[in-house]
Amino acid sequence: MTPDTFIKFGIDVLIIVIKIAVVLVIGLLHVAYATYFERKVIGHMQVRLGPMRVGPHGLLQPFADGIKLFFKEDLIPEKADKVVFYLAPVIFMASAMVNLAFIPFSHNFIIADINIGLLFIFAIAGIGVYGIFISGWASNSKYAFIGGLRSSAQVISYEIAMGFSLVGVMIMAGSLNLTEIVRAQENSIFGMYAIPQIVGFVIFVIAAVAETNRTPFDLPEAESELVAGYFVEYTGFRFALFFLGEYIAMFIMASLCTVCFLGGWTLPWYVLKVLPFLQHVPGIVWFLIKVYAFIFFYYWIRATVPRYRYDQLMSIGWKILIPVALANILVTGLVKILL
């Protein structure tokens, strides 16, 4: 090893560390303002105003919330399984955070550009459910317990549907690398896979909502039935970790959707043809616009629909989404072979 390679390695590490720092800061700020954004969006949809008190138009509300949660008394149920109780929010939050590493924000901005990015994201997201489940178990509370059970069943079944819905994309792109998938979309006829893969897209959207425990699939939390579900016993900062985890998971899902179906940081060629000046806009802007549009969609859904029941949710997952996703794979495969 020459000093040259050594320095090169050092610079590489440094770049990665900087990238991580940037992503983490963006991620956390995102969470802070995603909650604000959510409250404002839903507020206005419900002819309210949302937060208005802290700062102009309530802009500092997320910080006020954060500070409040940080200084709140940390309660632990008496007969809780302490170690596991401490561990659960960390697992939940960490698994969500790690996934940020595989998201290609732009053609040259990705922390870990690995070949099996898509699979990796699934694997790590799957770990998050352990956080939910063990928090429900360790809280020693019946409501939390039911919430944890519901959640693990739900996440497991919807992960399958989601995975299947993405197989179509993999077939079309011929790769599991997220950057490759975006590139493949850029060169495809429609510019984004959401159009040829409309079935897969719809399934993905439904599964993504379910996977992140959002309305109408927010049964693990179901505030009117289970009060808050698995994290009902958590207070203060531990609660905040769950909260962060949930919003980061939403961000991951939105990014995944953007990358796999909406063309990532690229714009479809026909748009660029009509409005050529748009190509000077950096890719990350398009990426974030798409992600936030998807997140807006999340909120929008939440403001509109009621909640499913647990068994209905399971039957939708297993009896509708998975068969349809399988059929979609079949058709995509056939078309790919025939063309």
């Binding site: 949809m45 002819v47 309210r48 009117s224 403001a303 509109t304 909640r307």
Partner: peptide, 16 residues
């Protein structure tokens, strides 16, 4: 009733 079943917006429209 709607809020219990998860339709939050109906709640606020009704209250209006």
């Amino acid at each position: 009733h709607a809020l219990d079943i998860g339709a939050m917006t109906v709640f606020l429209y009704c209250f209006r």
